[in-house]
Amino acid sequence: MALPRWFPLARNEARILLTSKGPWALAALLVLWAYRPSYIAWDGLGPDMTVGFVQTTATIVLPLGALLLSYRSIVGERRSGSLKFVLGLPLTRTDVLVGKVLGRSVGIAVPVTVSASALGLIGLVRFGLFSPLRFLAVLLATHLYVLVLVSLATAVSAVTTSTVRATGVVFGVVFLVLTVFWKLIASRIYSAVSGQAANPYDAPADGLLFALLRVSPDRSYRVLTNWILGVGNSGASYDAVITKLQTPTSISVFVVEAAFETTPVPFYLHEVTGFVVLVVWLVVPLGVARYLFERGDLV
């Protein structure tokens, strides 16, 4: 079977990352960041708490790292001129985008897998055997999330001509708006649209609010992985969801089951939407970027 045209480029991109220090520093950081045993998580999950650690890697640190390692991939090469060699290869510009996204994603997914394995090993020794299937499923979901982040950063990188603007969009929009502050922003949008307060201690049983909340790839990733963990239908972290469902008024977290106690849950809040939203974030921005990147001048 012939390898795809973009394969050597993707391999090259992965190699550039894997032979540099950044991704390995990220791997070490992820382990330190995500190893957080707690009584409440142990109560809710038992040994599967270890699988929860993998979900925690994808909070804040992983998005920041993945975006940092990919936002310059095209605009930086365009500025320096190394893109000219890549564009001179027998590849369409779409091939170039695909090769960059997949290669960079592998270059980040490998250290992420190493961190997850380290967390798995520590968890296995300290807390006993967890469900290997759940572990694998959460790890795969994390890989999908890495792919989404790299694809978003590459899409921005492909359509901007200045590194400063790429930095602004990637960190201002993707990281701050969609990752760090999305819960706050979605609540504000909801209040403005519905005229109702979105109080996280006692959230209204309104599908719109919960749908808005899971628009962000960050929260969708957690909806998906909380589903795999079986803790509840929410874009919050697994331990927060467990806490919320035990003592609902103690914590400012949005969980579908806590809000829809008496009313039926709308079908579009099914956990599978977490996966769907991630796929949309993977495909749509890159599709738009491809359209523009195929047409423009690149020198």
């Binding site: 090259n12 190699r15 550039i16 032979t19 540099s20 090469e77 320096s80 001129g81 190394s82 000219k84 060699f85 001179g88």
Partner: peptide, 14 residues
Amino acid sequence: VGILPDRYDTYDGL
């Protein structure tokens, strides 16, 4: 086609 562009840059780490 073999290409030698102007104002290019190579990959420092490779």
